[in-house]
Design a protein around this nucleic acid. Structure first.
Lengths: 348, 348
DNA sequence: GTGAAAGCGCTAACAC
DNA sequence: GTGTTAGCGCTTTCAC
């Protein structure tokens, strides 16, 4: 580890000059040629600043605290972490991740993160919902990921659930489906209601009547299977929009029992949480993937723009990255989800 | 943030005395009553040490670098992170997680972690394999998670793949299955070979002949489905051991096409990667879950025991935690995987 | 323009 | 036994 002192000695200047130069604060303070010498020497010696020492002085660390629940129990939401981590790396930050679903309570974890001097917090939930942000976070910049929050005090980023339902339904309509079923979740969770609204809106916009008999909101296991069977027998759907891949399963099994094939006899679009389908039946399944990676990435960019008091639109993002989606008036950003076209929709 | 200096002033002693007392190094150096006073004052003022300042001095940080690939693309392996994070929290450590599957290369990430002064590294892979540890890590304690490494220089923790195959097959045998099929993966990955060995060994120990016609090693999609169908038609199995849940899927679909039910007509034990099955068809499926959480937890305990040069068996683990599994001679620890009994095995 | 000096909060060698 | 002192590597104020 080469230090500034060593560079100072080698170059024959003082540490303060080195610090000035290496931090780009030498404008009109240090002569250009000596600045050059310092930079050259630093490069030659492979100088890298010691973040600990810098943090002790400046009390900012370029570390972000990522607080999550249920990383354990939700498939693929881990992509939020990956997205956040990559954004952080691109912008010169590190992520310390704590999960609050374990033996250690959220409060203790937050206190520990504060002691380590994190510059801000990402508060992530593993399924989209309304949540309350712990009061202890309010001393720092916070961005909420995959959730929203009632007070409007914090920025948040979550998937646009309405357009998920709308796009899926519209896609089935465009394929010529006349009787599109909605296989939902029996829990009254946020995503459920909004996707269902999108389904209804798409039907309405296409001039199709909404038929309650085509809707079934199921839990799981045999009971769910029976509900789906019952709906199919009564309402004869030719297309299905499924809340998630667990619900798609019941349709696949019902098709198999009838000797029918998804993508040949029935159309199906489903939200893909687990990706066992992608792995197993692809390219048979047309799916919508939740934008976990994007949410993590953008939330981190936004948080850092808060931390550094800069306008997110001026942030230099890597060329490969899409521009930050615009903020709504209430601080909420909804991310549109892509529909991945495969073969499980047949033209009727 | 109260500092040692403030405590020293309030108590009327020097900072060094405070430091000694608060670090438990006052044995025979500071009088008991004054030590008491210091402790009381510290408590009253809600003193918490500043880890940055301490680290700058001691050059250890109580931060562990967690290096992983493919957190993005592997379901549930995120549990390794959760386990590691909880173990770290229990032992007073923090985890900085970097993923090497993104735009930033492993080398840069490792350099950054070193600058932040991590005390050691967890080098995790998201599926079990033989891997090479980057040379730059050798300056620090390292534990390998969910992988092994050819040189034998590092400790590693991975699932016992052999017993997965053995236990699953034995369980099916005990239920009376006479013709147990093995639905494997067509890739020659480590887990594949060992689970297959376990399957063969269990058959042999039970005195059943190994029948090649009951084995099919499939990739995915229609081709995989066709192979499974072909095997079933030719060899008439009454029980199935499936390499993972993607492969279980094909058996479920084949059963549905015949109007048969898993758990009534056919027995099935599968390794459960995605848990869409657990969510969807439980309690119909008898599964083996990979011990991701445990691997993360134990790897972290072991790493910390290296860092602090203590015998892992003397570590005070939380009462809820199982004891650390023993180390093999080559530094490898294999974790036995539990078989979760449900209803997808029928007594023949 | 440049350097000396103070100090972020803590630890540890060394006086007394 | 306890306090004084000297840093860890860096930033920043203030003389010169």
């Amino acid at each position: 580890m080469t230090t500034m002192k060593e560079i100072a000695v080698k170059t024959g200047v003082s540490v303060s000059t080195v610090s000035l130069v290496l931090n780009g604060r030498d404008k009109g303070r240090v002569k250009a040629d000596i600045a050059q010498k310092v930079k050259a020497q630093a490069k030659a010696m492979g100088y890298r600043p010691n973040p600990l020492a810098r943090s002790l002085r400046t009390s900012h660390t370029r570390i972000i605290g990522f607080i999550s629940e249920e990383v354990a129990t939700t498939p693929y939401a881990g992509n939020i972490i990956v997205g956040a981590q990559e954004a952080a790396a691109n912008l010169g930050y590190m992520l310390i991740i704590v999960s609050a679903d374990g033996s250690y309570e959220e409060g203790k974890q937050i206190a520990a993160l504060k002691r380590y001097g994190v510059d801000g917090f990402l508060y992530a939930k593993m399924y989209n919902r309304v949540t309350n942000v712990p009061a202890t976070l309010s001393s720092h910049p916070v961005v909420i990921v995959n959730a929203s929050e009632p007070t409007g005090r914090y920025s948040s980023i979550s998937p646009n659930e309405f357009t998920i339902g709308y796009d899926a339904t519209q896609y089935l309509l465009a394929a010529g489906c006349q009787r599109i079923a909605y296989i939902g979740d029996s829990e009254p969770i946020l995503a459920q209601g909004k996707r269902f609204n999108g389904y209804q809106a798409a039907l309405k916009d296409a001039g199709q009547a909404f038929r309650p008999e085509l809707v079934t909101q199921v839990s799981r296991n045999q009971e769910a299977m029976d509900s789906v069977e019952h709906m199919i027998q009564g309402a004869h759907p030719d297309g299905f929009f499924c809340f998630n891949d667990s619900r798609s399963w019941y349709v696949y099994e019902a098709a198999a029992r009838r000797g029918l094939h998804i993508g040949q006899d029935w159309s199906l679009v489903g939200v893909d949480n687990h990706r066992v389908f992608a792995e197993t039946v692809a390219p048979r399944l047309t799916t919508i993937e939740l934008p976990h990676y994007e949410m993590g990435y953008w939330a981190t960019c936004k948080l850092i723009s808060h931390i550094e008091h800069i306008d997110p639109s001026t942030m230099t993002l890597p060329a490969t990255t899409a521009p930050l989606p615009p903020l709504q008036a209430d601080g909420t950003t909804l991310i549109h989800c892509q529909l991945l076209e495969k073969e499980s929709v047949v033209n009727h």
